[in-house]
């Protein structure tokens, strides 16, 4: 399939992820949406890598994946920690930065 089709899928997945991040109340689903967005980015990287015939895109996709794993680990740790202190997993109830 031509590259643009993959790019369109990647864009669509990124948008769905963005909508999830912006709208959902549950921290876990927000984190999943973030993962989804990162995966969409990976897809775009790999598509262009094939189009250009350059495997550096794969290396970057690898790094993105590692980064996503690290992000998931720390993010989930924060969720657990916040849940312990506040007994909540809802983003709208975690507003300690309110001015």
């Amino acid at each position: 399939m031509p590259t643009y089709a993959y790019i369109l899928v990647s864009l669509a997945l990124f948008f769905v992820g963005a909508a999830g991040v912006l709208l959902r109340r549950n921290v876990l689903i927000v984190l999943m949406s973030v993962e989804m967005q990162l995966a969409a980015g990976t897809l775009a990287l790999l598509s262009f890598s094939r189009a250009l015939g350059d495997q550096k895109g794969h290396v970057f996709a690898f790094f993105v994946m590692a980064l996503a794993a690290a992000e998931a680990a720390v993010g989930l740790a924060i969720v657990v920690s916040v849940f312990r202190t506040r007994r909540t997993a809802s983003l709208d109830e975690v507003n300690g930065l309110k001015g």
Binding site: V21, L91, D92, K98, G99
Partner: peptide
């Protein structure tokens, strides 16, 4: 005034970013 912008809601910050 600026305090009103600081809602403390990450999602709204992101929405404004978008």
């Amino acid at each position: 005034l600026l305090r009103l912008v600081q809602v403390g809601d990450v999602q709204r910050y992101l929405a404004i970013f978008a």
